[in-house]
Nucleic acid binder design. Sequence first.
DNA 1: GCGTAAAGTCTACACCGTAGAGAAGGTGTC
DNA 2: GACACCTTCTCTACGGTGTAGACTTTACGC
Lengths: 234, 234
Amino acid sequence: MTSTKHAPKAAPPRKARLSREVVLAAALELVDAEGVDALTMRRLGQELGRDPMSLYRYAANRAALLDGVTETVLEELTVFADDVDWQSQLRRMAHDLRRVALRHPNVVPLLVTRPLSTPLGLRPLAALRPLEQILDLLIKEGFAPADALHVYRAYYGFLYGHILNELQEYIVDPDENEAILRLGLHRLPANEFPRLRALGPVLADYNGETELDQGLSILLSGLAAQLARPHQNP
Amino acid sequence: MTSTKHAPKAAPPRKARLSREVVLAAALELVDAEGVDALTMRRLGQELGRDPMSLYRYAANRAALLDGVTETVLEELTVFADDVDWQSQLRRMAHDLRRVALRHPNVVPLLVTRPLSTPLGLRPLAALRPLEQILDLLIKEGFAPADALHVYRAYYGFLYGHILNELQEYIVDPDENEAILRLGLHRLPANEFPRLRALGPVLADYNGETELDQGLSILLSGLAAQLARPHQNP
DNA sequence: GCGTAAAGTCTACACCGTAGAGAAGGTGTC
DNA sequence: GACACCTTCTCTACGGTGTAGACTTTACGC
C-alpha cells in the first residue's frame, strides 16, 4: 500500500485542471450512459475524481449544470449556409436535429423541458441560433418577417413533436419491441380499442427518418399552399 | 381546546378514508399550484393530513404518482363523437388538448416526458384513447389504416410541439413580458442575431389560439394535398 | 366479541443539493 | 529565498429527499 495522504476511495484517474468544458462533457457522458437522474453532484464529482463541491466553480447549481448539458448538445448542430432552396434547407436542418436527438435520447427531456422555465430572450445563444438561422433563411427567400416567424413556429413545433413521438416509439431491441407491443396491445379492452389492436403489425415497424420526411412533406406542401406567396410569387 | 390524541402539527383537516382518486387530485392540485418539484411524498402527506408512508398504498412510488397525475389530466379531455367532417374534428380535439395544457402548465413537462419511459403498449388507457379515437375517425373517413397512423403521427407531433412552443412563449405578466423580451433581445450580439432583434415587437404579442389554428390549417391543407385520396391513389 | 385483512404510522437509512470555512496550489513582486 | 494574493479544490455539516420494514390502528364480516 502506497502512502498517499488518505486512501483514495474509488479511482481518481487524473488531476488535470478542471474547466467548464470538461465538466459539461463528463456530465453529458453520464446522462447519455445512465439518464438524467444519474447526474448528481456527488456522482459527477466521483467521475471526475474531484470533490463534489468543486463543481460549483463551473455551474451555479445542479439546474445550471443541466442547462449546460442541453447547451452542449445543441452545439452539436451543424451550421448549414447553403444556397439550395429553403424547403430542402429546412429538411436538412430537421434531419440534423433528429440525428442529434437520437444520439442523446436521454437529453431530449431536458431539451424540450428546460426552456419552459426560461423566457425566450434569456435563453443560451446556442438555443436561439437555429431560430435566427431559419428566420434569416425565410426572409431572404422573400417571406415577410412576421410570416417567417409563423413558419418557424409551425416548423419547429412539428419538429419537436416528431422527435418526442419517435423517441416514444423507439425501443432498444426491435425483437423485444414487437413482443412487448403485442403483449401491451393484447391487454387493451377489445371493444374500446379495436383500431389500435388491429394495427399491431403496422405499429411495430416504424422508420423515424421516413416518418419525419413524410411529415415535412405534408407541412411544406401545406406551407406552400397557405402562404407561399412571399410578397409576390415568382 | 379539545383533547385529541396528540397535538395536531399543522392542520389535518379531516380524517376521511383516502383513495387513489383523492390522492391524485391532491397531487395535481399541488403540482398546479407550485410545480412538479413541490410534489414530494412528505409534502403531499402533510397536505392530506396523513403520514407520507400512507401514500404508498395508492402509488407504488413517486414516479408512479407522477404518472397518475398526468393520467388524471388526460382524463379531462372531452370525448367528441360528432358527425362533422374529420378536419374540424381534428381541430376541435387540438384546441381541447391545448386548453387542458394551459389549465395545467406545470403538468406539461410530465405529459411530454413520462411516456418516454413507457413503451406504447403499456401506457395508461387515458393516454391511448385519443390515438384510438383519431384512428377510428380517419379510418371511417376512408383512410387506409396505415395512412391513418401516419396522419395521426404528423398531427399529434405538431400538436405537442405547438403546446411546448406556446408554453415557452407564455409569460404570466404581459407587461413584464415585453420588458423582459426587450431586455433579453438587447443582450444578443447584433451582428449574429439581426433578424431576431428586429422582430422584437412581433415576438411580443403572441396569440396561441390563432397560432395553433393557423398551424393546423397548414398541416391539414398539406394533408389534403399529400394523401387525401383515401384508399387507392389515382 | 373476535379474527383477519386493510389502512395508516413510526423509525431508520442511504442519498441528495449546497452553505461556509478552510487548505492547497499557482503566480507575481521584492 | 520570502511574502502576499487569488484561484481552485476539499471538508464538514445541515436539512431535505424516497422508501424499506416492522409496528399499530381501524373496519368489517361473522
